[in-house]
Design a protein around this nucleic acid. Structure first.
Length: 330
DNA sequence: CTAGGATCCTGTCAGC
DNA sequence: TGCTGACAGGATCCTA
């Protein structure tokens, strides 16, 4: 499920491949996945690739732009004469023969083809005048990028959504842009906050910690390439899960917490599958944050908090570690 | 106004 | 083996 780091990986990966290149022809499949006029793209040259939240914006030299949203299962796959690149929702399409049944738009360039694939048709490519991109209803309503947001600003927004579970607030793109289900879970684990905690009950310190977690986890994911072909297809040709590179809780239910060894569990919060360490993220522990800590000293859930200073926190637990669990290596 | 549920869509997988 | 239903979850729409 492409979130901010995945879209940023798409942007960075595609930029050297299609910037200043001419789109000879756009071939959209009929349906909602393509909005606007394909002929506005034909013959245009790409002059910029931008990202806002989870949206990718491709600017063309004819004052038109393409607003691309991958939603849940979208992918952008480049097949060039001299290069290949794929990113977005990891799937067999990264290496499959294209176009296929999931191809929604095909862009013919002079030296390659770009495929917009989307299994579930939730994503879209929208062609509109460049000057109208900022006024697009989705773009205009987006909150700030995590790294542009101050902790107290997020705290104020939490107060505004005081009765909503913090996870729902984090997923709200109007509050903060780019966080999806994966990074919401990871950020909350980082901050040792239970996802069902009402946003208004969080201390300013906890909100700051959540924001710090979001920035760190997403940055680490961007640095490792997000869900690109390179992270999905292992060097030996087998398919792995890019989440293994950084996920502490997401989709790790049944496995043990890397901090305390407790079994990760899955629950449903805000209508989403949600993964937590029940020991590190205790519900209600937020109601008495500081004074209880001071009184009782190191409680069990406090030990999980040990990585306040990122010093002892290794970026990537790679190197043939135990994180590689269900992946068949045969 | 907010919170929460249904909706869109298709492929996968568990269970019968 | 083959069918059915639950599930995946980003954003929007609708309801209370």
């Amino acid at each position: 499920m492409p979130e901010l780091p995945e879209v940023e990986s798409v942007r960075r990966g595609l930029e050297p491949l299609i910037l200043k290149k001419k789109i000879i022809r756009a071939k959209p499949e009929p349906g909602k996945c393509f909005q606007g006029e394909a002929r506005d793209i034909d013959g245009a040259t790409v002059v910029g690739l931008r990202r806002r939240g989870k949206a990718l914006i491709v600017d063309l030299d004819n004052r038109k732009s393409m607003l691309i949203h991958l939603r849940m299962t979208g992918q952008l796959i480049w097949r060039g004469d001299h290069s290949n690149f794929a990113a977005g929702h990891p799937s067999k399409n990264f290496t499959a023969e294209l176009p296929n049944s999931q191809t929604r738009v095909e862009f013919d360039f002079e030296d390659g083809k770009l495929f917009f694939n989307d299994q579930r048709k939730f994503g879209f490519v929208k062609v509109l005048p460049t000057e109208e991109v900022e006024q697009d209803s989705f773009i205009a309503s987006l909150g700030k990028e995590p790294w542009d947001m101050q902790a107290d600003e997020l705290y104020q927004k939490c107060q505004r959504h005081a009765r909503a579970p913090i996870k729902a607030v984090l997923l709200d793109q109007k509050v903060i842009a780019g966080i999806g289900n994966i990074y919401a879970d990871e950020s909350l684990f980082y901050a040792s906050v239970h996802p069902e905690t009402r946003a208004g009950e969080l201390s300013a310190l906890q909100v700051a910690k959540i924001l710090e977690g979001a920035c760190k986890v997403m940055q680490a994911s961007i640095d490792s390439g997000g869900s690109t072909m390179a992270t999905y297809i292992k060097p030996d040709g087998s398919t792995g899960n890019y989440l293994e590179l950084f996920a502490q809780v997401f989709r790790r239910d049944g496995e043990t917490c890397k901090r305390c060894g407790t079994e990760i569990i899955k629950l449903r919060v805000a209508g989403r599958g949600t993964h937590i360490c029940p020991a590190c993220q205790k519900q209600g522990s937020v109601n008495k944050p500081l004074n209880q800590e001071r009184k009782t000293g190191m409680k069990s859930n406090r030990t999980c908090n040990a990585n306040t200073s990122s010093k002892n926190r290794k970026q990537q637990p790679d190197g043939g570690n135990s994180a590689i669990k269900g992946v068949k290596s045969d």
